[in-house]
Amino acid sequence: MTSERWPTELRLAKDKRSLQVTFDDGTTFDLPAEYLRVTSPSAEVQGHSPAERKTVPGKRNVEIVGVQPVGNYAVKLVFDDMHDSGIYGWDYLYRLGAEQGGRWQAYLDELAAKGLTRDRVR
């Protein structure tokens, strides 16, 4: 796998609520844990086709508890809800950062349309 983007730094916030990624073009993105969790590239979230993609509710307070390299092309994030099957390639992380505003609003719109919330249902 080749990537057009290459990270020069990944930094997990002390509160584990965001991941800062800096790329070789100088671009830096601060990606919230909740955003990374609900946009996970895993089959559990994305399904095996666009029709199978899931809207993941209740992740407002999720934390990243592990950041594991996958070869030289990606990183695997482990969340405190035990989700750990998403492999975040460098290009995907860059797209998540570059498209964060639109993707986040689309997620919020999906939650509202489905009567779901960002908060965990108790």
Rank of each mutant, 00 (worst) to 15 (best):
13 A>H: 14
46 Q>R: 14
97 G>W: 02
17 R>D: 04
68 Q>E: 13
99 E>A: 12
121 V>E: 15
67 V>I: 13
57 P>R: 01
2 T>G: 05
81 D>V: 09
7 P>K: 10
82 M>G: 00
68 Q>H: 09
51 A>I: 08
114 K>N: 14
104 W>T: 12
110 E>C: 05
49 S>L: 06
31 L>Q: 01
105 Q>C: 02
93 L>C: 10
65 V>P: 01
103 R>P: 00
1 M>Y: 11
17 R>L: 12
4 E>Y: 12
115 G>F: 04
75 V>R: 03
8 T>A: 04
110 E>V: 03
57 P>Q: 02
87 I>K: 10
32 P>R: 07
114 K>V: 04
118 R>N: 05
46 Q>F: 00
104 W>Y: 08
47 G>C: 08
65 V>S: 07
84 D>L: 02
13 A>V: 05
95 R>N: 06
91 D>H: 09
38 V>D: 08
95 R>T: 11
75 V>S: 01
101 G>K: 12
12 L>T: 08
62 V>T: 14
71 G>K: 02
93 L>E: 09
35 Y>C: 07
121 V>Q: 14
64 I>P: 08
105 Q>F: 03
96 L>E: 05
115 G>H: 05
47 G>Q: 03
117 T>E: 11
64 I>R: 06
57 P>D: 04
24 D>I: 02
26 G>F: 10
70 V>C: 03
117 T>R: 13
86 G>R: 04
90 W>Y: 15
78 V>D: 02
106 A>D: 14
73 Y>N: 07
101 G>C: 01
63 E>I: 00
35 Y>N: 04
43 A>F: 08
2 T>R: 12
28 T>W: 05
71 G>Y: 02
21 V>N: 10
86 G>C: 07
101 G>Y: 00
21 V>S: 11
54 K>V: 04
10 L>S: 02
26 G>Y: 11
6 W>E: 15
49 S>C: 15
31 L>M: 03
23 F>V: 04
3 S>F: 02
52 E>S: 12
7 P>L: 12
27 T>L: 09
19 L>W: 07
82 M>N: 11
79 F>K: 07
118 R>C: 01
35 Y>T: 01
117 T>I: 01
112 A>M: 02
2 T>L: 12
30 D>Q: 09
91 D>F: 05
15 D>W: 11
120 R>K: 14
89 G>R: 14
62 V>I: 14
88 Y>C: 08
8 T>F: 02
122 R>I: 01
78 V>N: 01
65 V>F: 02
41 P>T: 07
72 N>M: 05
42 S>M: 06
3 S>V: 00
